[in-house]
Protein backbone atom coordinates (compact mmCIF):
# COMPACT_ATOMS: atom_id res chain seq x y z
CA UNK A 1 0.00 0.00 0.00
CA UNK A 2 2.78 2.41 0.89
CA UNK A 3 4.56 1.48 -2.27
CA UNK A 4 1.68 2.80 -4.24
CA UNK A 5 1.61 6.04 -2.35
CA UNK A 6 5.29 6.64 -2.78
CA UNK A 7 4.83 6.78 -6.50
CA UNK A 8 3.54 10.28 -6.06
CA UNK A 9 7.01 11.37 -5.06
CA UNK A 10 8.00 10.70 -8.59
CA UNK A 11 9.98 13.61 -10.03
CA UNK A 12 7.40 13.86 -12.79
CA UNK A 13 4.80 14.93 -10.25
CA UNK A 14 6.96 17.63 -8.84
CA UNK A 15 7.44 18.87 -12.37
CA UNK A 16 3.68 19.11 -12.73
CA UNK A 17 3.49 20.80 -9.40
CA UNK A 18 6.03 23.34 -10.46
CA UNK A 19 4.21 23.89 -13.71
CA UNK A 20 0.89 24.47 -11.96
CA UNK A 21 2.48 26.83 -9.50
CA UNK A 22 4.02 28.75 -12.34
CA UNK A 23 0.64 28.94 -14.12
CA UNK A 24 -1.05 30.18 -10.98
CA UNK A 25 1.49 32.90 -10.60
CA UNK A 26 1.56 33.91 -14.22
CA UNK A 27 -2.19 33.91 -14.70
CA UNK A 28 -3.52 35.15 -11.41
CA UNK A 29 -6.00 37.96 -11.61
CA UNK A 30 -4.18 41.17 -12.15
CA UNK A 31 -5.66 44.15 -10.37
CA UNK A 32 -7.44 42.44 -7.52
CA UNK A 33 -4.50 40.68 -5.99
CA UNK A 34 -5.36 41.00 -2.37
CA UNK A 35 -6.64 38.82 0.41
CA UNK A 36 -10.23 39.06 -0.65
CA UNK A 37 -9.70 38.31 -4.31
CA UNK A 38 -11.92 35.51 -5.55
CA UNK A 39 -11.02 32.66 -7.84
CA UNK A 40 -12.05 32.73 -11.48
CA UNK A 41 -15.65 31.79 -11.96
CA UNK A 42 -16.83 33.31 -8.69
CA UNK A 43 -20.34 34.71 -8.64
CA UNK A 44 -21.03 37.44 -9.58
CA UNK A 45 -18.41 38.13 -12.24
CA UNK A 46 -17.07 41.67 -12.03
CA UNK A 47 -15.70 44.08 -14.61
CA UNK A 48 -14.17 47.41 -13.71
CA UNK A 49 -13.64 50.41 -15.93
CA UNK A 50 -12.31 53.86 -15.29
CA UNK A 51 -12.76 57.33 -16.72
CA UNK A 52 -11.02 60.52 -15.71
CA UNK A 53 -13.41 61.24 -12.88
CA UNK A 54 -15.31 57.99 -12.22
CA UNK A 55 -14.85 54.31 -11.66
CA UNK A 56 -17.49 51.98 -13.05
CA UNK A 57 -17.96 48.54 -11.62
CA UNK A 58 -20.20 46.03 -13.37
CA UNK A 59 -21.37 42.99 -11.45
CA UNK A 60 -23.11 40.32 -13.52
CA UNK A 61 -25.96 39.23 -11.29
CA UNK A 62 -28.52 37.49 -13.50
CA UNK A 63 -31.88 36.69 -11.99
CA UNK A 64 -31.49 39.01 -9.03
CA UNK A 65 -33.63 41.99 -8.13
CA UNK A 66 -32.57 45.01 -6.11
CA UNK A 67 -33.85 43.43 -2.89
CA UNK A 68 -31.65 40.38 -3.33
CA UNK A 69 -28.43 42.39 -3.39
CA UNK A 70 -26.81 44.26 -0.54
CA UNK A 71 -24.21 46.78 -1.54
CA UNK A 72 -22.01 48.50 1.01
CA UNK A 73 -18.74 50.35 1.39
CA UNK A 74 -16.86 49.52 4.56
CA UNK A 75 -13.48 50.98 5.23
CA UNK A 76 -12.57 51.44 1.61
CA UNK A 77 -13.86 48.03 0.53
CA UNK A 78 -16.94 47.65 -1.62
CA UNK A 79 -18.99 44.59 -0.73
CA UNK A 80 -21.60 42.96 -2.91
CA UNK A 81 -23.55 40.41 -0.93
CA UNK A 82 -26.66 38.46 -1.59
CA UNK A 83 -28.35 35.22 -2.21
CA UNK A 84 -29.57 33.61 -5.37
CA UNK A 85 -32.27 31.05 -4.79
CA UNK A 86 -32.26 27.91 -6.89
CA UNK A 87 -34.89 27.66 -9.58
CA UNK A 88 -38.20 27.60 -7.75
CA UNK A 89 -41.53 26.06 -8.51
CA UNK A 90 -42.65 22.55 -7.92
CA UNK A 91 -39.76 20.22 -8.44
CA UNK A 92 -41.75 17.02 -8.28
CA UNK A 93 -41.48 14.94 -11.39
CA UNK A 94 -38.64 17.07 -12.66
CA UNK A 95 -35.62 15.45 -14.20
CA UNK A 96 -32.49 17.55 -14.25
CA UNK A 97 -29.95 17.19 -17.00
CA UNK A 98 -27.75 20.15 -16.31
CA UNK A 99 -27.29 22.43 -13.33
CA UNK A 100 -24.52 24.85 -14.15
CA UNK A 101 -26.06 28.04 -12.80
CA UNK A 102 -24.91 29.38 -9.48
CA UNK A 103 -27.24 29.11 -6.49
CA UNK A 104 -26.64 30.12 -2.91
CA UNK A 105 -25.14 32.96 -0.94
CA UNK A 106 -22.36 35.08 -2.29
CA UNK A 107 -20.02 37.85 -1.22
CA UNK A 108 -17.58 39.68 -3.36
CA UNK A 109 -15.30 42.39 -2.11
CA UNK A 110 -13.39 44.94 -4.09
CA UNK A 111 -10.69 47.06 -2.53
CA UNK A 112 -11.29 50.62 -3.64
CA UNK A 113 -8.40 52.93 -4.32
CA UNK A 114 -7.86 55.78 -1.85
CA UNK A 115 -8.91 58.37 -4.37
CA UNK A 116 -12.50 57.12 -4.48
CA UNK A 117 -15.04 59.16 -2.56
CA UNK A 118 -17.01 56.57 -0.52
CA UNK A 119 -19.94 58.96 -0.11
CA UNK A 120 -20.62 59.30 -3.79
CA UNK A 121 -21.71 55.87 -4.91
CA UNK A 122 -24.62 55.22 -7.25
CA UNK A 123 -25.90 51.83 -8.25
CA UNK A 124 -28.34 50.67 -10.88
CA UNK A 125 -29.59 47.24 -11.85
CA UNK A 126 -30.71 46.44 -15.37
CA UNK A 127 -31.01 43.19 -17.29
CA UNK A 128 -29.10 41.34 -14.61
CA UNK A 129 -26.16 43.74 -14.56
CA UNK A 130 -25.47 45.83 -11.47
CA UNK A 131 -23.67 49.02 -12.42
CA UNK A 132 -21.93 50.84 -9.59
CA UNK A 133 -20.61 54.30 -10.28
CA UNK A 134 -18.00 55.67 -7.93
CA UNK A 135 -16.64 59.16 -8.14
CA UNK A 136 -13.00 60.01 -7.72
CA UNK A 137 -12.08 62.74 -5.32
CA UNK A 138 -11.68 66.12 -6.90
CA UNK A 139 -8.02 66.40 -6.01
CA UNK A 140 -7.13 63.08 -7.65
CA UNK A 141 -8.48 63.89 -11.10
CA UNK A 142 -6.00 64.72 -13.80
CA UNK A 143 -5.32 68.38 -14.06
CA UNK A 144 -3.49 70.43 -16.55
CA UNK A 145 -0.90 72.68 -15.04
CA UNK A 146 -0.20 75.82 -16.88
CA UNK A 147 3.41 76.55 -17.48
CA UNK A 148 4.18 80.16 -17.01
CA UNK A 149 6.80 81.92 -18.94
CA UNK A 150 9.69 82.91 -16.73
Amino acid sequence: MFNQLSRFNDPLFSDFDRLFRWMDEAMSDVGLRDLRSAPRGAFPAINVGETEDTIHLYAFTPGLSGEDIELSVEDGVLFIRGKRAPEDGETDGRTWYRRERFAGEFTRAVQLPDYVDPDQVEARLRDGVLTVRLRKREESRPRKIAIKAA
Binding site: P44, F60, T61, P62, G63, E87, G93, R94, T95, W96, Y97, R98, R99, E100, R101, F102, D127, G128, V129
Partner: peptide
Amino acid sequence: PPVEVFEDHDAVWILADMPGVS
Protein backbone atom coordinates in the same frame (compact mmCIF):
# COMPACT_ATOMS: atom_id res chain seq x y z
CA PRO B 1 -23.78 30.89 -20.80
CA PRO B 2 -24.25 28.49 -17.88
CA VAL B 3 -27.55 26.66 -18.21
CA GLU B 4 -30.03 24.54 -16.40
CA VAL B 5 -31.88 21.93 -18.38
CA PHE B 6 -34.75 20.02 -16.90
CA GLU B 7 -37.81 18.14 -17.95
CA ASP B 8 -41.23 17.96 -16.43
CA HIS B 9 -44.43 16.23 -17.47
CA ASP B 10 -45.09 18.16 -20.62
CA ALA B 11 -42.03 20.18 -21.52
CA VAL B 12 -38.27 20.47 -21.49
CA TRP B 13 -36.95 23.74 -20.05
CA ILE B 14 -33.71 25.59 -20.60
CA LEU B 15 -32.64 28.38 -18.26
CA ALA B 16 -29.57 30.38 -19.24
CA ASP B 17 -27.71 33.12 -17.39
CA MET B 18 -27.21 35.90 -19.88
CA PRO B 19 -26.69 39.09 -17.88
CA GLY B 20 -26.62 42.24 -19.98
CA VAL B 21 -28.91 40.80 -22.62
CA SER B 22 -32.28 42.46 -23.07
